[in-house]
């Protein structure tokens, strides 16, 4: 127990040291070179700005978090069932799947201005953009997971004489889960980015809006503070998926290995 603690502290020492060095260098360079505040504020004034603007930033955080979570949830609820249909219907696999793979390569975020025109400046247009950037990674990875069942497992499931539904729940779905989580993780990273960009294109609230309105007034410290909060939201989303993965997939090899 103590040994593992010591070891984990030792492995964390260098990266944490590098981060601290970076922050100290930032602070010192900005102060000694007298960099103007609107170009790059010292790290301490970013933290200060974070403290003084906390209530406003929290309000913006709630807006962005709501867009992100709703868009993500809808893309999970639509993406995974659709993946099941695509994986098990030959027709869908030949029509929908190639289209989805092509669309995955298209910059979907380009549709953001159009959704703002269609759905207005409020919640709905952002949620749809988040949905769009989350949906395809989830769909494509889930289809891939359902399709790539190991042959020996496939043969085994046939030999048991279990009904297709039972095979699905007991074998295919669990076997596809690791790949599904790859998609969920990718989508979790995309989600906050989608929400932020949608707020830039047309919005009056949220962390993305906070960033642009702060840079517009040359309050670079506030902009960096907002980016800090946004990063925390993104990491929280990702962390949620990782925790869920660890709970659901504790039996899988990716969860049992210590490192990559």
């Amino acid at each position: 127990m103590l040994k593992t603690l010591v070891r984990s502290i030792r492995t964390a020492l260098l990266p944490v040291g590098a981060l601290l060095l970076f922050l100290v260098l930032w602070e010192v360079l900005v102060r000694t070179l007298k960099v103007p505040r609107y170009i790059l504020p010292a790290f301490s004034s970013v933290l200060q700005s974070l403290g003084t603007n906390l209530p406003a930033l929290l309000k913006h955080t709630l807006v962005t978090a709501e867009e992100t979570l709703c868009g993500f949830a809808i893309s999970v609820l639509l993406g995974i069932p659709l993946a099941v249909v695509v994986a098990f219907s030959k027709f869908m696999r030949k029509t929908v799947y190639p289209a989805a793979v092509t669309l995955e390569m298209v910059p979907k975020i380009a549709f953001a201005p159009i959704f703002v025109v269609w759905l207005g400046f409020q919640f709905a247009s952002k949620m749809v953009v988040v949905f769009l950037v989350c949906f395809f990674p989830i769909l494509i990875n889930a289809v891939f997971g359902f399709l790539s069942l190991e042959e020996n497992l496939q043969r085994f499931s046939q030999s048991t004489g279990a009904s297709p539904l039972r095979v699905f729940w007991k074998i295919r779905f669990p076997a596809a889960l690791p790949e599904i989580f790859v998609g969920l993780k990718g989508a979790a990273i995309n989600a906050t980015v989608g929400a932020t960009i949608a707020e830039w294109v047309g919005g009056n609230a949220g962390l993305g809006y906070a960033i642009t309105s702060a840079t517009g007034m040359f309050q670079t410290d506030l902009a960096l503070a907002s980016i800090l909060v946004l990063t925390a939201v993104g990491l929280a989303m990702y962390g949620l998926v990782v925790i869920l993965e660890a709970r659901v997939l504790h039996w899988h090899i990716s969860q049992r290995q210590g490192e990559i």
Binding site: T196, I211, T231
Partner: peptide, 11 residues
């Protein structure tokens, strides 16, 4: 990799 780097665009 997990940080939304595009958020730096306005800066």
């Amino acid at each position: 990799q997990l940080v939304p780097k595009i958020a730096l665009a306005p800066l």
